[in-house]
């Protein structure tokens, strides 16, 4: 298929786009569509929090208050100590296991930023009753999650003032995608076509572990 029609389209979009961009300093948009968002509307939806604390609401909560709330509203799924009930996710434990065969990736073991806990619980927990907690409650339960992950003591109070003083153990455990450098060997090699290896051995089979639902299997019969 020719790529030229698509290229032409992209160019026209670029032209249109930059025309609109030129106007961007003015108060009125170039095209009369949509309307200005009201401050109350932005406040209702813009609840995200960043690692530097930008986006935090006012309020505070202690480990003690958080424990009570966690037992009432979270422990049924996440376990009393955050260990995870049944197949529900663990929210604590696993420290120092990132190179193990079965690494724990809960908050204290893996997460880089406290803001992520606050933001995530605030927007989506408890599961099935999202955005029902007050700001103080989110501070408190975040403080409790930090406590059961051995990051703060049992007298800790989380607030905008104490927020950026807390660092998670794995804060330095992440780096930007470097596949194009470290996996460079996967590019521009001439793939072998004939006699590429002498023998082929089967190392393992899915059947041994057999996890496939019964009715999804194809029976073998050949003509």
């Amino acid at each position: 298929m020719s790529r030229f029609p698509r290229l032409a389209l992209i160019i026209s979009v670029l032209v249109l786009g930059s025309a609109a961009h030129g106007d961007s300093a003015s108060a009125e948009p170039a095209i009369a569509l949509g309307r200005a968002a009201l401050p109350e509307e932005i406040a209702a939806w813009d609840i995200d929090v960043r690692p530097d604390g930008v986006g935090l609401p006012s309020g505070k909560g202690s480990v003690k208050q958080g424990e009570e709330l966690f037992l009432q509203q979270c422990a049924a799924c996440h376990g009393e100590f955050g260990e995870g009930a049944g197949r529900w996710p663990a929210v604590a434990g696993g420290r120092g296991s990132l190179t193990d065969d079965n690494p724990g990736k809960a908050i204290g073991a893996y997460w880089p930023y406290v803001s992520t806990i606050f933001d995530y619980v605030r927007r989506s927990m408890p599961f099935g009753n999202a955005q029902s907690l007050t700001s103080d409650e989110v501070y408190a339960v975040t403080a409790f999650l930090l406590f059961i992950n051995d990051v703060v003591g049992d007298d800790f109070v989380l607030s905008p003032e104490t927020f950026t003083s807390v660092r998670l153990p794995n804060a330095n455990g992440f780096y930007e995608d470097d596949r194009e450098i470290t996996e460079r060997a996967l590019w521009n090699r001439e793939p072998c076509m004939i006699n590429c290896k002498s023998e082929v051995m089967i190392l393992n089979r899915a059947r041994v572990l057999d996890v496939t639902p019964e009715d999804a299997k194809g029976a073998g019969s050949v003509d």
Binding site: R50, T99, P103, Y110, P112, Y113, T116, Y120, F174
Partner: peptide, 24 residues
């Protein structure tokens, strides 16, 4: 923003215990 789906999830933990992020 380093939200949950780009920290706890969707980061690639490598053998040395460090993880690649923003592997889009």
């Amino acid at each position: 923003w380093h939200h949950r789906e780009e920290t706890s999830k969707y980061t690639d933990l490598l053998a040395d215990g460090r993880a690649r992020r923003f592997t889009w």
